[in-house]
Amino acid sequence: MLHLCIKAENTKLRRSVIWIACFLIPIIPAIMGTFNYLQNLGILTGEWYSLWTQFTLFYAIFFYSPLIALYCSYLWRLEHLDHNWNVLMTMPVRVSNVLFGKLFIVCKVTLITQAWMVLLFVLCGKLSGLPGLPPAMIYFWALRGTVAAVAIGALQLLLSMCLRSFALPIGIALGGSIGGLLINNMGCGLFFPYSLMLMGMNSNSYDDKLAGDTWKFLLAVLVYFLLFIAISLRILKKKDVRA
């Protein structure tokens, strides 16, 4: 049944505006990050690592979570429109399959976004004249950022499911990202889900800030993921439909 739900969600995304966001947003840090890097070659001497800091500086801190929020809002908006909630809840599938179907799609789109960002990173690096290919560590950071998206995806799906507004969860994600930056600077990043993105992607640093502590990061992602999924499933099972 899960694969049918995924198939249905995929069908809903066909020719959707969501792909514009997925491909357009990473182009902004690519152009501007590279521009910034080339303007400050005197200070930024870490080659691929320096370019990575410029790429992810604002992307991971402020815009990654709202982007995932945008994907989640879009997926739930279809259910909030007209009387689709009635249709959704009377479908002969378990609500967990519906939720995991949506989460799978969010993860898929996020993975594509991240892959596109990494591709742009390599392209911009080569165009900037950087030697060879990026170090393996940078791919690992990008992957870690994608893993963090699973927890944020679960949280944003919960918010978008409960709030019938399209825009509000995106505003919350931006607020959360700024709060995440402040909390991370206080050294408590693992205790706030929105801090996980910038921690995972190791933005604004040459050295891996999570070196040796990656397991703690993964544990935090798992805990948040289970928590938000459990809350979402409980709401879906217990609450009546407000169509």
Binding site: L24, P29, M32, F62, F63, L70, S73, R77, F166, I170
Partner: peptide
């Protein structure tokens, strides 16, 4: 008809506005 477009523009505006301060 779909609010994803204004929100996407808002998000891109934030991004562009922030980066433009370094231009």
């Amino acid at each position: 008809a779909n609010q994803i477009i204004p929100l996407l523009v808002g998000l891109m505006g934030s991004f562009l506005g922030l980066f433009s301060m370094y231009f």
